[in-house]
Amino acid sequence: MELRRKAGSGARIPTSSMADIAFLLIVFFMVTTIFKLEQGLVITLPRSIAGEKIPREKIAHIWIDRTGVLSIDDMVISVPDIEPLVLAKLRENPGVIIAFNSDESAPYRIVNEAMERLKLANALRIAFTTVPVEK
């Protein structure tokens, strides 16, 4: 009996500090994580009431700022570059929806040119990203 008691008291791992270790790890990873900033250009999206939800996994963005600067995948590009980039995206995901994240005061000309390039690349599913407004 005495022997058993000794063995029982010897093998004890303190579990009360486990949570502290877990928190330490969480804090460590929170501090060291760097989020990829996907925000391409500084824009003010137009508002819409009829906006629908667009499945996020199908979206590829084209950014257009108020001066007409174009950007895809954090790269500032010119209009003719749209076609090869979009073709590559179509190869990866044939159902891709090209979302126009365009500033509300961007000239329509540049949006139209981008759409013409998408037609050439045969990327026909698009969406105009907007900020929802309540009815």
Partner: peptide, 26 residues
């Protein structure tokens, strides 16, 4: 509770709102 919290933080994605459109093919 934390496990659930982390699971939902990771799996949540906010839907994007927009006006969909189908372009005519060239």
């Amino acid at each position: 509770a934390f496990l659930l919290l982390i699971f939902f933080i990771v799996s949540t994605s906010f839907p994007e709102i927009g006006l969909p459109m189908i372009l005519p093919s060239k």
